[in-house]
């Protein structure tokens, strides 16, 4: 099942709805990169609330998605990592260095909005 990516103003919201196979992860990676470019998005929210686990493959993929989006001018924030998932990731030694995180969608949006606000204020 492909990951739906919704456009909301300057932001993209991608909501992972169920466990992804490796192929689906790679597809998602391509889709998102393409959308960030075509919509000239300023921010991306990657909502992983529905994921009951993240292994090294998916966490590396998410991290490179965030870095690629940044190269195209969009800041990414991963939201909704569950407590058990966070615990397992740290045990595994994967801590998504350099990627923004927030508690949930609401927090993620607030984070991205504060970035945009600061940016317009600065001009």
């Amino acid at each position: 099942m492909p990951v739906p990516i919704l456009k909301q103003g300057d932001f993209l919201i991608a909501t992972v709805q169920s466990a992804l196979s490796d192929r689906e992860v790679l597809q998602f990676q391509d889709d998102l990169a393409e959308r960030v470019g075509s919509f000239r998005s300023r921010g991306v929210i990657l909502d992983v609330t529905a994921l009951d686990m993240m292994d090294s493959f998916v966490s590396r993929a998410f991290r490179s998605m965030a870095l690629m989006a940044k190269l195209k001018g969009a800041e990414t924030v991963i939201v909704g990592i569950q407590p058990e998932v966070a615990f397992a990731l740290v045990q595994l030694g994967l801590t998504l260095e350099g990627v923004n995180t927030a508690l949930d969608l609401e927090e993620g949006l607030a984070f991205l909005r504060s970035l945009t606000r600061r940016r317009t204020d600065g001009r």
Binding site: D52, M54, V85, L92
Partner: peptide, 28 residues
């Protein structure tokens, strides 16, 4: 494979954290 592992762990009374650790290990 990892869904089977999680299901069996929860059936056996493992905590959600442990079931998650197990599923992650199986995935790897």
């Amino acid at each position: 494979a990892r869904s089977e592992g999680r299901r069996m762990a929860l059936e056996l009374g493992f905590s959600r954290t442990d079931a998650t650790l197990l599923a992650t290990a199986i995935s790897e």
